[in-house]
Design a protein around this nucleic acid. Sequence first.
DNA 1: GATGAATGAGTGTTCATTCAT
DNA 2: GATGAATGAACACTCATTCAT
Lengths: 219, 219, 219, 219
Amino acid sequence: MSTAPRTARGNRTRAKLLEAAEAVFASVGYHEASIVKITEAAGVGLGTFYLYFDGKQAIFDEVVEDLNRRVRHAMTDAARNAANRMEAERAGFRAFFRFTAQHPALYRIIRQAEFVSPGALRLHYTRIVNGYIEGLKSAQAGGEVRDMDPTVAAWALMGIGELIGMRWVLWDEEGAPPVEGARPEVPEEVFEEMMQFIERGLAPDTRPSSTPPQEGTLP
Amino acid sequence: MSTAPRTARGNRTRAKLLEAAEAVFASVGYHEASIVKITEAAGVGLGTFYLYFDGKQAIFDEVVEDLNRRVRHAMTDAARNAANRMEAERAGFRAFFRFTAQHPALYRIIRQAEFVSPGALRLHYTRIVNGYIEGLKSAQAGGEVRDMDPTVAAWALMGIGELIGMRWVLWDEEGAPPVEGARPEVPEEVFEEMMQFIERGLAPDTRPSSTPPQEGTLP
Amino acid sequence: MSTAPRTARGNRTRAKLLEAAEAVFASVGYHEASIVKITEAAGVGLGTFYLYFDGKQAIFDEVVEDLNRRVRHAMTDAARNAANRMEAERAGFRAFFRFTAQHPALYRIIRQAEFVSPGALRLHYTRIVNGYIEGLKSAQAGGEVRDMDPTVAAWALMGIGELIGMRWVLWDEEGAPPVEGARPEVPEEVFEEMMQFIERGLAPDTRPSSTPPQEGTLP
Amino acid sequence: MSTAPRTARGNRTRAKLLEAAEAVFASVGYHEASIVKITEAAGVGLGTFYLYFDGKQAIFDEVVEDLNRRVRHAMTDAARNAANRMEAERAGFRAFFRFTAQHPALYRIIRQAEFVSPGALRLHYTRIVNGYIEGLKSAQAGGEVRDMDPTVAAWALMGIGELIGMRWVLWDEEGAPPVEGARPEVPEEVFEEMMQFIERGLAPDTRPSSTPPQEGTLP
DNA sequence: GATGAATGAGTGTTCATTCAT
DNA sequence: GATGAATGAACACTCATTCAT
């Protein structure tokens, strides 16, 4: 059974392992990632691994957890000072793509999780989606978003972000399988088109018939 | 080196292997799927496998290829007799979800492909997206869809379908990781909400300023 | 899951492994015996082992079973043509020591079994003891052995054989730990002393005072 | 290299380790017993172990030594105030079984010693047997035991005690492999049958026909 | 005197692949 | 065309031992 580190040195070792694991999982995937590769990348002995983690699964779960926490923080931080809901949405998506660009691990690891750790996978998506849902609800309360089921909308947004990110952040132009390292973010035009699509999908109805006040301005 | 079957018996054997492989990959994933499991499921000898396929990767690629062809046929078939573009879109999505429900393998196998066979993964998405793009282009020509970049729209649609499908088709309610076997399709309300979202996102502008005829009705 | 061999070649391989395992277990003990050592001794590939046995424990159990069967056969065969019970006992013990001399594995493996496979250990002793018990019972019926609890007597005999065998068959004079290879049997004087001890322990009472009644029935 | 403790505190630590080791070896066997388990059971740090013992083997040897000393003391103490040789024998066996019941470790550890520390094993048996031999010799001098080779007799007694003890002290009725904890001693009937067997095996010849006094009754 | 983080050789086991039948 | 016995590289994981603190 692995133990939490009790010393500063132990804390450092554990962190090195976690970081190395993220990199290795991201670059070769869960199954090709051997403990030896991880410990070598971390610069520690093989046995050391088992001082801090119960096994390959365990560190994988922690990596997923960690990435999930970080991407959500990145998104909420970015959305914090937005003027309105739509600005917040844009900021959130930008942060998401930026994070993806800096941590390609996110996608690659999450996709592996399907078979490796289904629970972790669901938790990951659910947490992000829940963030969307909350945002959408308050936007609906403020009249900024039309009255649709926020859960459906949230999953739709998640899907849009996921595949747009995959296509424009992860896939290098017509190239080889993506590897680690920083990547360009989503091109501005693409981002704008995507946001237009989302905003229209969520926009409240503006049918003239439903806005009597304007009619009052008529002569 | 594998050989194309030369006899009718050989054709049958090859088909049995392909079918078995799909089932095995879908239920336990690529890495847990051993050649022995596949040949046992197919009811043939272990050595026979290598008469028809060059290896595990090779049969995996063929399974992906096969699934991709089938899901696209299902979608285009469904959309064929649609009255207009939006009807076609609805029919396509429905077909996509139905196929997913009947072949959970689709998702599960595709997600594995990221590391196993990146080329196959990209081909899969690209082919479906290309179908969307074509449809969107012709809809734009007919004025049914607004003038946005059809590629961005296509990837957005793909993402929506992917995650809505994952959430409502593959995940059993609050439960264990999805396994094989047929599942319920997406609930009607969810489908409708999703389609509303998409339709609004794609709908041509109906700004009064751009529709002078309406202005003429004013006094 | 291991499979029974289906071919003659497979049968040979399995037998080679079993024989090699007996030798390796006997010479270095269960824990030091690695599968590699066994397969090398058997002259087969490492992976081949798992075609025939489920693991180290499994082959160990089979080796114990096998040794047990053989030692019992050796004993009953030897006792078969004995004139009377006591002759049978002597023949049985001689066979036991001879077997031990030729298969030092017997002792060494059995002693290991305590922790490795307690069930196998108990079965081993119980089976041999049961043989003794039966023999003792019929000897009692014939008046050759006094009326004591045959189970207690059987375990006592077992113990005598075990430790006399250990001392005179397995331990080379004042020397290093015993290794494999044939050894001298128990010296004749020791054997004779031991049998005397046993025979007296089992001999029926011959007090004249206890049999006069029968004599009294004579005319 | 381990050091003898120099302080009272050190003495206590060493004793704790020895006690813990006996318990751990007894319950899981030599190979499953890890130094960590022992130090945890002793309530000391892992590194501390190597302050007092050179390694796993070394502490094992000490545990064997210790158990051997204690069982012999138990036996000689019990036999000390016996009226005659046979009483002493009975008392010794009783003490042996009682010790076994209270320290199942004895058997379990001894059986492991075969491969772990063959020297320790031989020393253990030899010491106990030597005690028997001495006792038998003096009994022979006193005419209480017949004139047989005392070494053979001693090993026979050892064997009887060993297997009767194993069967009735260690094996719970028809049950699972024995674990630690106190156990019932050998049932009285069994003990009595065993002693009868031994006494007859050792008893001096008392054939009336061979006793000259009777001859004197002849005319 | 005491500690526990670090190490890496060694183990059991799996499985894609080959090839003689 | 079909088979399955044989192979060995590769992996996750354990644990006795060392040593800096």
